[in-house]
Design a protein around this nucleic acid. Sequence first.
DNA 1: TATATTTGCTTGCGATTTGCAAGTGCAAAG
DNA 2: CTTTGCACTTGCAAATCGCAAGCAAATATA
Lengths: 137, 137
Amino acid sequence: MKPPKQRSACALSSSLDILGDKWTLLILRDILFIGKSSYGEFAQSEEKMATNVLADRLALLECQGIVTKTVAADKKSKFTYRLTEKGLDLAPLMGELILWGHQHCANVDDTALMLELRQDQAGTIRKYQELARAAAR
Amino acid sequence: MKPPKQRSACALSSSLDILGDKWTLLILRDILFIGKSSYGEFAQSEEKMATNVLADRLALLECQGIVTKTVAADKKSKFTYRLTEKGLDLAPLMGELILWGHQHCANVDDTALMLELRQDQAGTIRKYQELARAAAR
DNA sequence: TATATTTGCTTGCGATTTGCAAGTGCAAAG
DNA sequence: CTTTGCACTTGCAAATCGCAAGCAAATATA
């Protein structure tokens, strides 16, 4: 898997080269906030992403060093995807996406996470980063 | 212009329904951090987006209430695009994208904005929001 | 007043990417 | 030793994209 090409030396543009699509950040959301870790779990999420796109994005995330892929502890035929530190550093970004969506998009469900984020954004982000780190051990 | 369909009631997913592509946030970057305001200026930016995509994204941003489109003060054949409050609320998100890109992507230029963001993230975001509000008046 | 240029799109077209459905290979369970 | 579950892969039609050119209205220049 080859990395997507960089369109410019702009930091924002470079981030979008990797994250700028409708699916990638949903996978990371599933890992960070929902605690998912396998292909099958990602495939079942509410937004129903096509499996070829899922496989493509997982490969891309792995080659970018945002997630790691290891054989699952319980089954040899299963893989476990975890966030690296580079991936965990996307937590604040995801927090902002959640808050903006909640404030400005119609028909968005209220969740416990939302309430938590609004009351203590930085603390909530740290908490989920720590949970993900703990799961990786 | 019809809004893109919502894939689920998740806030993060709903934000991505609108912002999840490689171009939309670049336009908003140009307006907020670089001070651009017209079609021609957007078309000339470093990443060279195709003009049909530019026109499409501007229409989408306008119909979503993220930017306003008005006739330019100096020329009747020109339009001025400005951020609404909904658009200004994306400033923290853009800040996070810039910081992550700078930390984790190779070949990204250092800029004055980056230094500013790293020294006082919240203050810098407020400053650019205020600048954009001032330009709108 | 006639011509050229600027500005903001629109159109056509081949190439890429997507969504959907079905199929494949492998490991473990029965 | 057949069946089930998991992790993908493949085929194909439809949508989207990049690229180049074209177009119409407003302004600048001669």
